[in-house]
């Protein structure tokens, strides 16, 4: 069964088209990765699915019900973990979860039971009576998730739930996402961390300029770029001028810099490794190591959008 059906979805802000005739289907039980650089249109799409924004045109169906016509049904089956924390710092963890769950019609013992369950799920049972203002960033992120799941929604949208937290909390959240999925929830997951998406998502869509430009499993997406090779070169120091330096080399498409490493995406058919290295050495760059990698999701994203995910 399709849990989410988007057909011809468009959102305009004046003359600017944020989402352009987008269509997408997500099936029950998936962890769906929604990737796009800043301004690509993914947040606008998520906001329309959550009824925060009204579409200019198009249709959104949750569990086969049009959300414009049956918004209560759609909202009851939807949980959102917003990118920015959406919790009350002056209410205890339990009060936060039970307040939001109460808005979904839960009352009395059932409300108490669900709120406690949600807090236990995110590992905050022992902090139920504590105020979030005393929590670490990771604990607040976990409470943010608890507030979205206490009413047991069938579809959960997680908008960058791991931003700015320590690795331990990130692992906890990723494990929680998997557990939620195993318990029957469908999840739409957005992140700026490609490795997270690669690790947990069963299917991925890449959004650019308000359109879905690629969609499929990670293997399917990687197979679409057999014409690109990914060369990783570690230098003693990187000045930031390497991109300009390598642009004239035939076959080079993009050059990315990550600390002391430059990553060159180049046409697979062009044998240009020697020319790339010569160009760097002629410019006085000291090369420490060179490695040609298999294309990963980041390579796919870069090749398709021409931008880094974190741009």
């Amino acid at each position: 069964m399709n849990i989410l059906d988007i057909r011809g979805l468009t959102k305009k802000f004046g003359d600017f088209v944020a989402v352009d005739n987008m269509s997408l289907t997500i099936r029950e039980g998936e962890i769906f990765g929604f990737l796009g650089a800043n301004g690509a249109g993914k947040s606008t799409t998520i906001n329309m699915i959550s009824s925060l924004l009204r579409p200019t045109s198009g249709e959104i169906r949750i569990l086969e019900k049009d959300i414009a016509k049956q918004s209560r049904f759609a909202k009851t089956n939807l949980g959102i973990v917003p990118q920015d924390l959406a919790i009350y710092e002056d209410m205890t963890a339990y009060e936060n979860v039970s307040f939001f769950a109460g808005l979904y019609g839960l009352r009395g013992d059932k409300l108490k039971e669900r709120a406690e369950e949600a807090l236990e799920f995110v590992g905050l049972s022992d902090k139920a009576k504590s105020f979030p203002k005393n929590f670490s960033g990771g604990m607040k992120r976990r409470l943010n998730i608890a507030c979205a799941i206490a009413h047991k929604p069938k579809l959960i949208i997680m908008d960058e739930p791991t931003v700015g937290i320590d690795p331990q909390s990130r692992n906890y959240i990723l494990t929680s996402v998997r557990k939620l999925n195993e318990s029957g929830c469908t999840i739409i997951y957005t992140s700026h961390y490609m490795e997270e998406v690669e690790e947990i998502c069963s299917r991925i869509a890449i959004v650019d300029h308000g359109k879905i430009i690629a969609e499929g499993t990670k293997e399917q997406l990687k197979s679409t770029i057999t014409d690109v090779k990914d060369i990783r070169i570690e230098l003693k120091s990187v000045q930031g001028t390497e991109g300009e330096l390598l642009k004239p080399v035939p076959g080079v498409r993009t050059v990315l810099q990550e600390e002391n490493v430059i990553r060159v995406h180049s046409d697979a058919a062009v044998d240009n490794l020697n020319r790339i290295l010569k160009q760097l050495m002629d410019a006085g760059k000291e090369i420490r190591s060179v490695e040609e990698q298999e294309p990963n999701l980041e390579t796919v994203f870069l090749t398709l959008t021409g931008r880094n995910l974190r741009d």
């Binding site: 009824s51 909202k75 917003p82 919790i87 939001f100 979904y104």
Partner: peptide, 13 residues
């Protein structure tokens, strides 16, 4: 400002 407006609006109320 707290970001909680999102949760209030997406709730079925």
């Amino acid at each position: 400002l707290r970001g909680t407006a999102v949760r209030l609006v997406i709730a079925p109320i």
